[in-house]
Amino acid sequence: MGEIVIGILLILLSALIYFNSGDFPQLNETHLDPGSYPKLLALLLFLLSLILVIKSSVNLLKSKTSLFDSGIKDFLKKQWKEYKLVVYSLVILGLYILLLNVLGFIISSIAFIIAAGLLIGPKKKKDLITISIVSFVVTFGVYFFFENVLYVRFPNGIFF
């Protein structure tokens, strides 16, 4: 199933690349312009993905047993249990990245470490203390190391 979806997405990608490769300005009389090599790759990717889609469709039709044998609701429930934390941690990471510019490196990093640690691990008081200490030490350690040794400027955010 998933393979077919990925294959179709890749086919769309190759079409996108192919049809965007035609209108680059020509600088000189060369035999290959900036668009030819990507076009070649797009064609290759198209062919390979097409084979993948066909192959997986054939396999899917051949195998009689469907994924949804025990009811679609049950299937989704199992999937959700398995991938719940992946989705949540994706959301937390996304928020962290978005807030980095607003809250600044230090505040958002500390918040991120604590949030992710509590999300994945146990949520007792002792764990909260451990992860908080870890987050402070690591965030400030990274901050001072990169600012003073490698001269990196981290985003400071609106508070400083």
């Binding site: 990471l93 962290y96 991120f112 470490i113 604590i114 640690g117 691990g121 992860i131 870890v134 990274v142």
Partner: peptide, 14 residues
Amino acid sequence: THILFPLIMLLCVV
């Protein structure tokens, strides 16, 4: 894992 995960994630972003 719950301590390792956020720390490595932070290192990736940095």
